[in-house]
Each structure stands twice: as structure tokens, then as C-alpha cells.
Design a protein around this nucleic acid. Structure first.
Lengths: 214, 214
DNA sequence: CCCTGCCTCACCCATTCGGTGTAGTCAGAT
DNA sequence: ATCTGACTACACCGAATGGGTGAGGCAGGG
């Protein structure tokens, strides 16, 4: 069975040509496309691809935030960041958020495919086009991110973390309820528990805590 | 007149001894202390010190977030970050958020004082105890942060940015109104304008936009 | 078997929030 | 002198949110 991929990229042309390139490979299968961070989150939750190709620059939620949300609910999900700028400091933040690698958009396509397959096999790949000082900063970020696991979020159940991630994506209770196919009251109950566990007074504070502790 | 300082540090003992050290210097004057990020934000707005010594690790809002909020309202405010860990990747994020320098907590106290004065004079100081690869990453972050000025927040008035910063700090409308000594309705009006300008549907989305675009 | 934790749903009530409209003041620009 | 934009404030309404309480189903461990 082929490697299933999700493409999250807001530029239509680039996204589509990327899909063409990837679908051309027999061992790769693009099972979904998202045009913004929120969609990326939704699709990831529903499709559970093997690997996500995530652009850094996207509307609504940027790639870093989306990665953070996805990894909260699916800690094993592999996210490969795409960036145009070779000095985008957000890629370091992205790696901290759980991305397992990144590629510059001007990478060679064979190199690109190689990195995708290597990432799928579990390797953490740094694009060879990345400036040295950035690579080192990113490596430090990776090792740093690895050892961090004891956060306030640990006390939350899986379901609660999921609800919180949706809330942090900017969705209302009704919205979350529809997405998860439960009643609004259930969402409220979960949030109520979350507020208690995080010792916060409301929605915004909980989201802030989430963004900091992840 | 002495350099006015604000100390934002949650550990009481460290904060107080720091204050002793600083008050001992005739040209330095600690005019306020904060024990968490939110307090730091409030104090900065009210006291407008020459320089803020901001710990990275703090409850409610961490130093990075607090710096971001403060710099939104007071773009010229000088913030000096303090960190225990010499490999804390958040200091890079802090620099991006507007911090003009950082010091490791195990720095020598004469070195510490030297950095404070140098920072006050407008220099961007990197602690000599900082590992090389981090210093370079931070320098890159600084140059990167400098050239970024065109964000969606530009369209907001000063007052609106201020209101949004308070909201992003997790405060409710009533709370914001009290802090700024205006009515709740005024706060709501501002927020309404903010939602329109940012093209978002509500509070949480506006805060997310703010956190991304700053 | 029983207890516990988790997920689910419901109901009530007070508060807050969002949307809309109206309007006064003030400063700066034309 | 007029206009524009910013800041302020108020009113009204519907929707959303938060807090509290209670409760049923269900799986896993003791």
C-alpha cells in the first residue's frame, strides 16, 4: 500500500502541481488537500494520512499552529514543513511544535521525493538547502522538544485535548460539537473539566495555556 | 535621573535579591515588580519603565507572550529576557517578539549590570554565556524581526491594538474596561472594529491572528 | 461484582459576547 | 469652515458561553 499524503498549501497552483508530482509516483498517494491551517487540522483528524506536507504560510492558522494542534491529538503524526524563505525562523518553532522535518520550496524534486520517503521511514530530515546556522538551531530545537513531555496538558484526557485543540483553532462550541458529532452540552462539559484541570477561568485563558504548554 | 526598571520574575527570592542588587546601584531604580506575565503587561503599561527585566518562565503568560503584548502597545519599550537554560529555544522567539537582548541567570553580576546599562543605551546585547549556535540563531532572528513591519495589525489604531493585546492576555471585556477606565460598551465597540478590520468572526480568531501576525 | 474514570447528554441560570445603530467630542487635515 | 477619523458611550437583541448539578452507559481494574 502506498504512502498516504495530505497536502496543506494555500496557493492553488503550487498545491495542484505538487499533487501531480506526487500522484505520479506509484508508492505515494495524495488523499487530501487543505488550503488553510484549519482545514489541515480537520483533514488530518478525519483522514489520518501517513505524512502531512504543511506550508508554513497559510491563512487562518499558520503551519506552526496547525502542526501544534494536530500533534496534540495525534502525537505520532508526521508533519513535513514547507517554506519558501530559507531563513524563516518559524521553521524552528515548527520543529518545536512537532514537525519531523522541513523542506525549502526551491528544493529539487528528486530531493523532495527522497525526503518524503525518508521522513516516512522515520528519519528526521533537514533540507540540504538550509543555511548551516539554521540547521543547528533546528537540531537544538528538536532535542529540546524531545525531552519536553511534562506539561499541564498531560492531565487532560485524549478527548479533552482534542476539544481544546478545536477551541484553540478558533471554533465555537456548536462548531466543535458538529465536527465531533456530539451535542453542544458535551462540548461544554469537556471544556468545563478542562478549565478546572488547567485552573483557568475561561476559554481564552485555556487556549493561552495550551499554546504555551505545547 | 536613574534608569527605571521593572522586574518580571515569578520566583520571589530571586526577584527580591535581584531588586536588592539593582537598588544598590545609584543609577538604577526598580520602580515595579511583577510575578507573572499578565502583571508584567499591566505594570509596563502603567509604569512605562526604561527597561524591563523579563523572566522567560512565568505563570499565566510566559515572557515571550508578555513581551509581544507590551511591544504591541509600546513599540519602543526595551525588554531584556532572563533565562535559566542556556539552550532555551524560546529566547529566539523572545527576540522575535521584540526583546532587545537576553541574559542567562547564571551570569556574573557585574556582567549583568553592564548588560543592563548597555541595553539602556540602545545596544542589543547577547549574553557571553550563550552557546554559539544559539547566538547566531538569535542574530538571524533579530535581523528577521527587524524587517517585518507589514502585518494585518498595521491597519489597527493604537487604541485598538491596545484593546486586542489585553484580550490576548486573556482578559474579559469588563476587565479590559476597568483597566483602561472606559465603559464595557467602548471596549465592545473597539473589538467590533477589530473583528471587521482583521476579517475574523470573533474574539478567539482575532487573538490567533494577533499571535501569528506579531 | 463493584468502583472508577471517561464520555455522553440534559436542564437551568446568569453573564458575557457579537451585531447593529446612533451619537457626542476632539484633533488634524483639506 | 468643513470633513474625516478616532475615541468614547449608550441601547437593544439574540446568541454564545460559563457554572452548576445530575445522570446514564461503558470499559477496565481490583
Amino acid at each position: 500500500m502506498p504512502i498516504t499524503l495530505l497536502i496543506a498549501e494555500d496557493q492553488r497552483l503550487f498545491r495542484q502541481s505538487l499533487r501531480l508530482l506526487l500522484d505520479h509516483e506509484p508508492d505515494l498517494s495524495v488523499i487530501g488537500e487543505a488550503t488553510d491551517g484549519r482545514e489541515a487540522f480537520d483533514c488530518a483528524m478525519k483522514l489520518k494520512p501517513d505524512l502531512i506536507l504543511m506550508d508554513v504560510d497559510m491563512p487562518k492558522l499558520d503551519g506552526v499552529m496547525a502542526t501544534k494542534l494536530i500533534r496534540t491529538c495525534l502525537p505520532e503524526m508526521k508533519v513535513l514543513m514547507l517554506s519558501v524563505h530559507d531563513e524563516d525562523t518559524r521553521i524552528i518553532a515548527a520543529v518545536q511544535a512537532g514537525a519531523v522535518g522541513y523542506i525549502l520550496k526551491d528544493a529539487d524534486h528528486t530531493e523532495f521525493l527522497r525526503i518524503i520517503r525518508a521522513t516516512y521511514r522515520g528519519q528526521t530530515v533537514l533540507s540540504p538547502f538550509m543555511p548551516d546556522r539554521f540547521a543547528r538551531g533546528a537540531v537544538a530545537a528538536i532535542t529540546h522538544a524531545q525531552k519536553v513531555e511534562e506539561s499541564r496538558l498531560s492531565g487532560l484526557t485524549e478527548r479533552e485535548k482534542e476539544i481544546l485543540a478545536y477551541a484553540a483553532a478558533g471554533r465555537g462550541n456548536k462548531d466543535i460539537a458538529d465536527q465531533l458529532c456530539v451535542s453542544v452540552d458535551t462540548v461544554k462539559t469537556h471544556l468545563h473539566h478542562i478549565y478546572q484541570k488547567l485552573a483557568v477561568t475561561g476559554r481564552v485563558e485555556a487556549i493561552l495555556a495550551y499554546l504555551q504548554e505545547s
